[in-house]
């Protein structure tokens, strides 16, 4: 098409993109200032290299432990969901068994319920098991996901049946077909589920906040919220803490951008 250059479009997009990222820039600048220069009027716009704000975050919080808790929780949830959801999704997409549609409907019904309805009884289960303030508490309920089953079932349904049939004729059982044929073929779906689960797990606040109240057992989300409660006004430290807490997922996003976007697009178009 012979088009004139879309200068106006670029201008609008560039200005709004800048507005979108400006808060982050200000966060970085503030995190490198002293408290007195952060609260100077009029403001100064240059960062000052006060890296000790970052060190202070580690003094005020068991940040290392919380970081590790968040990594283990996220990794555990991702691994569990990718395995368990893909198994169930394969069964719902390909295997025939009595009650399949009813059970799938039951799985889907979980999606319709706001998650706050699960919290009180889940908390009681954790308390009965003696799991409050433990890694199990923040991992185990997150191993299961109706959304993941639904998402991956769509992927399995879209795969051609011929390869499976050939493997079946060669005498491969359902587990082998699932493990060595279907899983590799459904890789884009698995990656999409993995990145979305990672995003939600890393940023999760409500459940970790409720079950793990011991600072050493908190996740970053809950720990930061607690830090904010105590050091309400030390903005440079708060900005430093919030920056390093959100950076890992932002880094993963930058590397796996396409998979993130496809995952999100799938939740929309296949929903």
């Amino acid at each position: 098409m012979s088009e004139r250059r879309p200068l106006g479009v670029h201008a609008v997009l560039a200005v709004s993109s800048l507005l979108m990222v400006a808060p982050f820039a200000w966060q970085i600048v503030t995190s490198l200032k002293t408290l007195s220069s952060a609260t100077a009027v009029p403001p100064t716009f240059l960062p000052e290299g006060r890296w000790d704000n970052y060190a202070k975050v580690f003094d005020l919080l068991p940040f290392g432990e919380q970081f590790l808790n968040t990594v283990v929780m996220s990794a555990g949830r991702v691994a569990g969901q990718v395995l368990f959801c893909s198994m169930a999704a394969y069964a719902f997409a390909r295997l025939r068994f009595p009650g399949r549609n009813l059970l799938f409907g039951l799985f889907l019904s979980v999606l319709m319920v706001p998650p706050q309805l699960f919290v009180i009884p889940q908390y009681q289960i954790m308390s009965t098991l003696g799991w409050l303030n433990s890694l199990q508490a923040i991992i185990v309920p997150g191993l299961f996901s109706a959304f993941g089953v639904f998402l991956l079932r769509q992927f399995f349904l879209a795969l051609p049946r011929e390869i499976e049939e050939a493997a079946r004729l060669d005498g491969a059982g359902p587990w082998r077909i699932y493990w060595s044929i279907m899983l590799p073929l459904a890789r884009p779906g698995l990656v999409a589920l993995a990145v979305l689960t990672l995003l939600w797990a890393w940023n999760d606040l409500f459940w970790p906040l409720v079950v793990n109240t011991d600072p050493e057992r908190m996740t970053l989300s809950a720990g930061l919220a607690a830090l904010q409660g105590q050091y309400q006004t030390d903005y440079p430290v708060l900005m430093a803490g919030s920056l390093i807490a959100s950076l890992p997922v932002i880094a993963v996003f930058v590397f796996l951008q396409r998979q993130f976007i496809q995952g999100i697009a799938h939740t929309g178009t296949k929903g």
Binding site: P23, F24, W26, Q27, T30, L199, W202, N203, L205, L220, S221, L224, A225, Q228, Y235, L238, M239, G241, S242, L243, A245, S246, V249, I250, F253, F260
Partner: peptide, 14 residues
Amino acid sequence: VTMPVAVAMLWRWL
């Protein structure tokens, strides 16, 4: 992709 807790702290500052 930014942690909502971090988003809230950032905007509280802004």
